[in-house]
């Protein structure tokens, strides 16, 4: 156990599926050689096969504390990196005979391939957005799987990092991570993953995915900070719960579950007898505690609907944006680097 642990809470009722987090991360960290197919931050429409494809069925993690075998996703499962033929279309004199497409084999999967598709039957279709990053687990399967002790969990903040000097690219961590949030850099021949923007955190700045999120979905902070949003949402109000707790890694990203509109009966009237998003589906993602969290959230929403106040919802509203970051709220523009 680290002395302290940074964590995030993602409010799924505020997630827009806009992928600004995804792009924020891509532009900051995964643009170098060998990283072109990496998306350390992803958002997928649920239900769906996600990224990498079928990751939820890929094994790894722990069952009753015992490490489980896991599968390695392929580049295609992650979606690979696509190159397009702009030059050919625009400048090579081919007229309308060439149109813009992926060079080479046409893709059959991508990191957001099943966007806005969901499940159910019209009009009782359902879906929601599920943002994911590395969970910086308290019991990290990747760290425990690595035979080279190349993965470290930092004492000061619990951030899990792959030591790229030690890593030999064996990918046992990729197999072991049940969330499939580790990528392999084919050029540097090392595994890489979300670093919780540690260079920013070290300077008191929230991670880019959180600070750049226009939906104000991502709360950040230290888990033990009772004045911060993480402790309040996870421990005090118990409205945020981890994804796939049964994977046994004790993830440090928590989710406020989605409250969907009601479903309809065969006549087209509102049917309150069961929810639009089936409970069993949410339980399959977040475990049984999701139903408690939902009940807590709905009760608070009923309070404000009736004109009352809710401290919990005030936290989720975040009247002051900076309150979302548990003190990691420094403006990065106030930093000026000196050339050494």
């Amino acid at each position: 156990m680290s002395k302290r642990q940074v964590a995030m809470v993602f409010d799924l009722n505020k997630c827009l599926g806009c992928q600004t987090c995804t792009i924020a991360c891509k532009r900051l960290w995964t643009r170098e050689e060998g990283m072109d197919y990496m998306w350390w931050a992803t958002v997928n429409t649920q239900p769906g096969r996600g990224t990498p494809r079928d990751w939820e069925q890929s094994g790894g993690g722990f069952k009753d504390g015992v490490a489980q075998a896991g599968k390695l996703p392929t580049r295609q499962d992650f979606g690979d990196a696509w190159k397009f033929n702009h030059e050919e279309v625009f400048f090579e004199g081919k007229g309308q005979s060439a149109h813009l497409q992926v060079v080479g084999e046409q893709p059959e999967w991508g990191p957001n391939w099943d966007e806005d598709q969901g499940a159910g039957e019209y009009p009782n279709a359902y879906y929601f957005y599920l943002p994911r990053i590395c969970n910086h687990c308290t019991h990290p399967a990747c760290l425990e799987a690595c035979p080279r002790k190349a993965i470290v969990k930092r004492e000061e903040d619990g951030i899990v990092l792959i030591d790229e000097d030690r890593c030999r690219g064996y990918r046992f961590c990729m197999e072991a991570c049940p969330y499939k949030k580790i990528y392999f850099n084919h050029v540097k021949k090392v595994s890489q993953k979300c670093i919780f923007c540690f260079p920013r955190v070290e300077q008191g700045v929230a991670p880019a995915c959180a600070r750049m999120c226009p939906g104000r979905v991502r709360f950040v902070g230290y888990k033990d900070d009772q004045n911060g949003p993480i402790w309040k949402l996870v421990e005090k109000y118990k409205v945020a719960i981890p994804l796939h707790p049964e994977f046994g890694t004790e993830p440090n990203v928590f989710y406020v579950p989605p409250v969907a509109p009601p479903r309809y009966d065969a006549e087209g009237n509102i049917d309150e007898s069961k929810p639009r998003i089936p409970d069993e589906y949410l339980v399959s993602l977040f475990g049984p505690k999701v139903l408690d969290a939902l009940a807590i959230l709905k009760a608070e929403m009923a309070k404000t609907r009736a004109g009352g106040k809710s401290e919990m919802l005030d936290v989720l509203i975040a009247y002051q944006w900076k309150s979302m970051f548990g003190g990691l709220d420094r403006d990065p523009a106030t930093i000026e680097w000196t050339k050494s």
Binding site: L28, W29, L161, D163, E164, D165, I195, C197, F198, P199, R200, E202, Q203, D331, A333, T334, I335, E336, W337, T338, S340
Partner: peptide, 22 residues
């Protein structure tokens, strides 16, 4: 906002690659 000067650390290990990238 008043910028505060921050010297990037001298290369210690792979982590500095990320610090410098930012």
């Amino acid at each position: 906002p008043t910028p505060t000067t921050q010297a990037p650390p001298a290369y210690g290990d792979w982590r500095d690659v990320y610090r410098e990238r930012w």
